[in-house]
Design a protein around this nucleic acid. Sequence first.
DNA 1: AATAAGGTTAACCATTTGGTTAATTCCTTT
DNA 2: AAAGGAATTAACCAAATGGTTAACCTTATT
Lengths: 203, 203
Amino acid sequence: MELKSDTEKVILDAARSIFSEKGLAGARMQEIADRANINKAMLHYYFRSKDKLFERVFKEAFQEFWPQITKSILESGTVEDFLKRAIGSYVDLFMNKPYLPIFILSEVNSNPDRIESLIKEGGVQPQIIIEYLQDKMEQGLLKKMNPRELLVNVISLSIFPFAGRPLIERMIFNGDKESVNSFLKERKHTIFEFLKPLIIENH
Amino acid sequence: MELKSDTEKVILDAARSIFSEKGLAGARMQEIADRANINKAMLHYYFRSKDKLFERVFKEAFQEFWPQITKSILESGTVEDFLKRAIGSYVDLFMNKPYLPIFILSEVNSNPDRIESLIKEGGVQPQIIIEYLQDKMEQGLLKKMNPRELLVNVISLSIFPFAGRPLIERMIFNGDKESVNSFLKERKHTIFEFLKPLIIENH
DNA sequence: AATAAGGTTAACCATTTGGTTAATTCCTTT
DNA sequence: AAAGGAATTAACCAAATGGTTAACCTTATT
């Protein structure tokens, strides 16, 4: 007895995989059906239209995307702790779901309005993070700078290597997949070490 | 008397604009023709097929993308100089052509093989940069770390804010386009300041 | 001015694609 | 086991789309 029928789950898995590989426009309903080992009519039976199906997949992806960093604040004490958690949760997430960054970036780009509603209902609260960082800076625990800049930098360092993986793999690692993989795995630590000098010793 | 006929140029401009907005799969030949104010048959007359047209647009975009950083080395003396040039040339490029990052990232993702040939014929030489950085580190002019890591970080910080602009605009700047714009404009300096501590004073 | 060649257009075509439908199977409830 | 509803399927449909074609226009050369 499951909330989602097995078929529904199978469809969502297939759809997620095809949509992130080819995008909304490039995906074919028939291909999704094939990957799910199911009749194409079932897609419409469960989700009515391609757009509705995509909307669902996108929403679920987007909701995994943002909350990480907010959560890591509420659970953390020191700045060091916060940075470790923020970076760590992103890197872990993208190691497990490498399709997420480019999927979100691509689709937000071709239809920016799509996230408007998700941001509102999703409770995205960047303000909390900005204020947290500003606090720590004023307390002299973090190098003073534009907190938005720091936030963007942390996100850039955490996300870009995953979004740009195919490029990085070919242009910087000469196509050596294994090297790239361990490089990405280590990111959790290297990004933190890279940012560590921003933390001011408490004494 | 031009090398490229006026029509050819008009088509390429329209194609670039549509392709970067909607991607290869999402773009419509009719829409490209409309934006170029010409008959759809002209697209095929000049470029034979949608794929050929896309290939051309993508190639031109990709060739703008990479050489920047390599060039900035050959022309620069000190490490400080190098960082300034590398970051500056990227930020300038993306301020003028904001569609570039996401366009390249998206299309490379949905067809990674596409860049194989371009990398070879395009003379992409990451080795030069890696070695340059390693040299400087060994000379004690740059903080010691994995040079590939540093390279990826510089690229991440330079590119991501442009690739993720729609996201950043809505999630971190509450939709205030003007703020985002000046934020991005200042990036040239802020990224450099951010990385400056890596440079070791020469004395 | 006649001619030829390239540029341009409207109409057309075959295929692909999202979506529908009506019939069939499966499962649960009585 | 009969019935009724949900799940599933094959066949089908209309619209969209990349691409073609044949006629027409423009321009430069003689």
